[in-house]
Design a protein around this nucleic acid. Structure first.
Lengths: 348, 348
DNA sequence: TCAGTATACTGAAACGTTACAGATTGCCAA
DNA sequence: TTGGCAATCTGTAACGTTTCAGTATACTGA
């Protein structure tokens, strides 16, 4: 029967060590429990005590220990952004991150980036996050109409938001760019320039916004009475070289399009290169409308017509949606659709 | 003297709950301590026991609870990438993240992105990370010759790596691109084309690589006998519009340069636009050498001369450096300098 | 035979937090 | 007076992990 001396090491307010609830309890002469509750404005704590505790806490710069909270409550204070490192680490990822951090900045949340690499099941990282309880909320992109990740997280009660919509009859927060409208506006802009044989460089087949884009394109085509020149051999997921080569092939054909619509700025660079490889001139032989997420295309070729998509806004909305869901709001009320800008020609 | 019944809730291997050490202990019939040590190959555990525990652990998919480990040991298994959201969230950030995640992928580490926004003290986020013990290692960029963040982390014993070198007489891991060599090569390439009045679009004043670039530029100028056309009114931190306007101004002067070196692709777009605004033609009136981090510039104007900087490599090296330091390697052995590619003309 | 020691294992405590189940005090109604 | 209740505050346990200080057993040398 031994009688060890237990050294606490924190019940004096001496050291350089980070203050804990125990430190605060010692300083205020209260119990640890009382301090804990006072800090979170629990009703059963006296008004004066509450103020006193909060004052002292602020003075000595108390910050709750994340590991303690997480261990006890399961709350991680983490939002995870799940990214496909193969396709998505293009410039717009930075913008999304920017938008997310902007929202998160004055919350206790941290942003962790969870990658999934080469040809891995997209569900893997999500499963990992859910199984290990690594995040309070998740943001995914490259959303599919029938998206197993969204389904999985719904089943497991994990708050999330998708960049892009789904079509499963399930309701969840999302943010999306109105690609149906984009494609439609693009067609109309080209039609207004007298172009009537149009080709489309689509989003990746299989993602939801592929459908919206294609539908918007098709509907507007018949609206303005233009026809489609099929160009199914590429999407914006293809490499610069592939897009360039196949565009050149396309433009050398007799039935070549006189208008092209591109769903991404990087692809547009390749498309224009392909057009010029074929000896044609932008603005004369063919017009191109492209989405872009930063103001680069007009520097590239002033003949380009552009539509702006704001990925910072996307990050912002997605983060707000996830936090909203975590805070208990209705998932259905956390959906947003961003309208495309006008189709813009080079402005002086 | 009450005699409450304590419900453990985990000592049966029943539920859907995540297995813990206790679960493993129950299943193997061992003590929690033994299981813990067996999993980390402690020497005082019998070989067979060790194998048995590890087998069971693998079978049921045991993963240590991060909060438990972190609370007990202080180890977070987190690497933090500290970013300036004002300047740095350009495309290359994605590449750095890609490189980092590549290294981190098969380690227990998570990557968290810690932003610091508009005109905030760059030391703030670092101080936060250190004070709250939120990360085992930190990666910073926009490194300065005398960098308070590096000094601070050295003082506090926090492993880190800098993107770019410092010049404080203190040794720490870094990865840097050899901008001295880049500027030199660029000057020589322009000289080889008969250009001898050269201007430089510099990195942001105050950052270490500003100095290297400027020195490489100056040394090579005198080496080849060319002269500098001062262009101090811009750096690559300026907006596209500013760079464009001032380049146009510069190019309208009588003493305009016949060669320009640009430290970033985005700036180069603006520079070329400015050149053309002034009615001059790239490749005829002036040649431009530019760094780029992805293959876009040759699509933009094939007359451009480019040097490639690999930011994915940077992320990769930085992550390896931090992990190496955490693992106990000598900081001085974790420094790397990446040589620029040749100056490349448009390749067919 | 016995002490000494190496081997293999174990319980308790601690990290910082919150939830649960009280405990203390004062006040009021009966 | 007494019982009840509201208002405040408190101790203990628990989250899952590792470390400390053991204990039990078998083996060793004399």
């Amino acid at each position: 029967m031994d009688r060890r001396v237990t050294k606490k090491g924190n019940d004096d307010a001496s050291g350089k060590e980070r203050p804990t609830l125990k430190t605060l309890a010692f300083m205020t002469g209260l119990g640890v429990t009382t301090v804990s509750r006072a800090l979170k404005d629990a009703p059963e704590i006296g008004a004066e005590t509450r103020r006193r505790v909060q004052l002292v806490a602020k003075q000595i710069g108390y910050r709750p220990n994340r590991a303690g909270v997480r261990l006890r409550t399961g709350k991680t204070n983490v939002i995870s952004l799940v990214l496909n490192t193969e396709h998505e680490l293009m410039s717009f990822v930075s913008d999304i991150i920017y938008g997310v951090t902007e929202v998160i900045a004055d919350t206790p949340y941290h942003l962790i980036v969870t990658p999934y690499s080469r040809s891995q099941d997209p569900l893997d990282p999500v499963r990992y996050l859910v199984e290990t309880g690594s995040a309070d909320g998740v943001i995914i992109s490259r959303t599919q109409p029938n998206d197993p990740r969204a389904r999985y997280m719904l089943e497991h009660g994990v708050p999330f938001a998708t960049h892009g919509r789904t079509d499963m009859g399930l309701v969840h927060p999302y943010h999306d760019f109105d690609n149906y409208a984009f494609a439609g506006e693009a067609v109309r802009a080209l039609a207004a320039k007298g172009r009537n044989r149009l080709a489309l460089v689509t989003p990746p087949v299989g993602l939801t916004y592929f459908r919206y884009t294609v539908n918007g394109f098709a509907d507007a085509l018949s609206e303005v009475g233009a026809s489609e020149v099929p160009f199914n051999t590429v999407s914006i997921d293809h490499t610069i070289e592939q897009i360039r080569m196949r565009t050149a092939q396309l433009m050398r054909r007799d039935d070549r399009p006189d208008g092209i619509i591109s769903s991404a700025a990087a692809a547009t660079l390749a498309v224009v290169a392909g057009i010029e490889d074929a000896g044609l001139k932008l603005g004369r032989d063919v017009d191109v409308v492209s989405k872009q997420s930063s103001e680069v295309l007009h520097l590239f070729r002033r003949e380009l017509l552009v539509v702006n998509e704001d990925f910072r806004l996307a990050g912002y909305e997605l983060a707000r949606a996830v936090l909203g869901w975590i805070a208990g709001k209705e998932p259905g009320s956390l959906q947003s659709l961003s309208k495309p800008s006008e189709v813009l020609p080079y402005r002086g």
